[in-house]
Structure formats: C-alpha cells, structure tokens
Nucleic acid binder design. Sequence first.
DNA 1: CGCACCCCTAAGCGCTTGCTCAGCAGCGCG
DNA 2: CGCGCTGCTGAGCAAGCGCTTAGGGGTGCG
Lengths: 213, 213
Amino acid sequence: MGAAAERAAEESEEWAGVSPDAARRLVSAAVEAFAERGYHATTTRDIAGRAGMSPAALYIHYKTKEELLYRISGIGHEKALRIMGAAAEAEGSATERLGDAVRTFARWHAEHHTTARVIQYELQALSPEHYTEITDLRRRTDRLLRQIIQDGQDSGEFRADDVPGTTLAVLSLCVDVARWFTADGPRTPDEVGALYADLVLRMVGAAVGPARV
Amino acid sequence: MGAAAERAAEESEEWAGVSPDAARRLVSAAVEAFAERGYHATTTRDIAGRAGMSPAALYIHYKTKEELLYRISGIGHEKALRIMGAAAEAEGSATERLGDAVRTFARWHAEHHTTARVIQYELQALSPEHYTEITDLRRRTDRLLRQIIQDGQDSGEFRADDVPGTTLAVLSLCVDVARWFTADGPRTPDEVGALYADLVLRMVGAAVGPARV
DNA sequence: CGCACCCCTAAGCGCTTGCTCAGCAGCGCG
DNA sequence: CGCGCTGCTGAGCAAGCGCTTAGGGGTGCG
C-alpha cells in the first residue's frame, strides 16, 4: 500500500472508533462546522443538519454540544500524542527522531487541518474539568518532544541553548499549520512536513544533509 | 502606581488614537473580552459592563458589535505592519534586518498578546468586506518579511531553499506567540523576542554569533 | 436663567439559542 | 399478529442574544 492510499484509508477511519453510525456522522459534521465557523458560532441545528438529522437527534447520542467538542478533542489529542510517541520511541539518533517527529506531526496537522484546528484552537470552550483533562494530553506530547531535543543536546548533536523555549517554538510551529493550511493551497501535507523538518533541524543546529556545505 | 494601574495606563495608551473617552474604554473592554472568551462568546452586555456603561451606550459609539472588532483589527494590523516596515526599511545587512524584524514582531505579539490574539484569531468573525480589507494589511506585512529573506538569499547570507515557505513559517511562529503567551509565564516579552530572533536566524542558515563555533 | 445639545440609561422588542418531550415508525421475536 | 425496544421527529420552551427607542440629566452658551 502506497503512502497516499495508506493516508486515505486513515482519513476515512479517522472517527472509526465512534459508534453507532449516527454518532459518528454527528462527530464528523461537528468537526466540519467547528473548524469553519468556530464552536460558539456553530448551532446544534447546523450540526444536526449536516449529519442529515433533526436537531433533537443530537441529544440521543450526546448530552450537550460541549460533550461533542470534548469527544473530538480527546480523540484528536490522543492521535497527536501517539504520533509524537512513535517518533520519540523509535530507534535512531536524536536528529533522526526529531526530523521524524516534526515531519509526521506537521504533516498530520496539514492533512487533518479541520480536526487539528478544532482541537488546538477551540479548547477554551470546554468545561474547566474537560479542559484540564485535555491539556494534560498536550503536556504529555510536549514532554515527549522536549526529551528528544534534550537528548540531542546531551549527545552534542544539537546546539539549542534554551531547550524548553526551543520545544515551545517547535510545537507552536507545527500546531499553527492547522490555522493557515488549506487543501487548495500550493503545498501538499507531505511537502509541509518535509519543509518543517528541515527548518527545525537547522533551528536546533543539527547537521542537515544537502543544505549544509 | 500599582501594577494594575500601570497596566491600565499602558492599556489605554494603546488605543490613544480612539476618542472620545467612552469609545476608547469600549475598545479596551472589547479587546479584553474577545481575547478571553472569543468574539462569539462575548456579549455586548459584557463589553459595556467592563467599560462601566449600560448595554445601550455601546451603540452610540459603534453601529454593531462587528464594527468594534473591525476597528480593533484595523488598528492592530496597522501597528503590526508598521513594526515590520520599520525593520524592513532599516539600514543594515539582511541578517540584521531579519533579526530585528523577528525580535520586534515576536515581542509585540507577547507584550500585546490580548490584542494580538484578537486580531490574529478572530478575523473570521468579520464581515466579508472587512475581512478582505484586513487580510490585505496582512499580505503587506508578509511581503515585507519575504523581501528581507529574499535579500539575504540573493546576497548569500541565507541558505533558505524555499523562500515563500520559510516566510510563512517565520510569520506563523511569531503570530502564534499570541496564542500561548501569558504575562505570568516564565518568559518576558524581551526574552521571547531574543529567543525567536536567534532561532529564526539559524533557521535561514545565517551566521549567528556566540552559538556558532 | 433658559435652552439646546450631547451622552447616557431603563425598558424591552424580535429573534435565535441550547435543549426537552410526547409520540411514532420500523424491526426482531414469540 | 402483537409487543416492546431503539432511534428518531415535530413542536416548542425558557433564556439569552444583538440591537432600538423614548426619555432624562448635566454642561456650556446666549
């Protein structure tokens, strides 16, 4: 299976864990609407309409509109955490692992930019308890990335004077892809991943291949 | 003068061009509320309350709630454009100008993170005409930065294979400061500016002082 | 003083919002 | 066939929204 086909399958299965079918259609519709207009500007009537149901049907599967956002945020951030974890726990030098982490993380934010936009920019609409639960997932993602950068610093591969600051910047860079990326833009998700991996490796002072003389 | 009063004074100075006094207080209150909750989750009653007036008073100075966001976005993006312009038109090498641009631009986004958050993340709430007008200001800021990077590429100071992509990444990095920065965090706006200038100069392959052996 | 003018408020209008509830269609099972 | 269960709808409620309007109080000028 090629990389494109693999990703297409992954796309259709983005909400595969949600059942029954009606609940999955609602999640998918909500992500679309939230990404387009924002959580507060989206009405439950709009979500239900996109899913092909009456407004009341939403409340059979979810107690509130906020619960929909909570479910989306949970699934999305767990996926993001797994992506970062796969790169962090792989074999290889810190340079290879950081390049992999940024490439896959940035690519996911481009490919799933609707989902990513919702889970990264609509968090403040969550209830306080749900908010702290979700930001905890974020902190774990952050720690994984920081460890890679710290490893490179310790091994002498990187020259990053301020490890926490650099981690923050790298994460911010990847996350913000979700804000500006559009499918009809000039860059594919793969190209964004490759570009960002290159930029970040230079940023931490790692030796990069062809660009360095 | 206490810290709160000092911040209030600085805050009101940011909108010095807005008069009369009641209109300025409303802008200031709206920025605070929009940054905290988002445009759609903010009520006109909340804005008026923060400004110490009745809900109806808002409509003496602004036709709609959207006009408030439009005024804030216009003033904010013009300020951002002037900051970038000052760095772009300064004397000096591309390295010096890019360092200056990133330092001042990132610092402004940290120092005025409430305003910056509103003007960078609430644009979609503007009317279509206002939206295109404001995004035009953004495009001009983008062009100034791209020219600096192109200059450095032409002179051989930088090694940035993809100038538009690198410009996008640098701008994205600076803008996203507004999302995560808080006044009670571990970094001052000056420190953020210095860190980001250093990271970006490495990113474009410029020769940076002490970090490079 | 008298009067005009500018800001402002109290009250409330029309509408939309998140959410509820009584009831109904379709299906599997005895 | 009848029965109950699941998943859904049509209608609608209370609350809150952006915004309007009629009127009042303070200030400066003749």
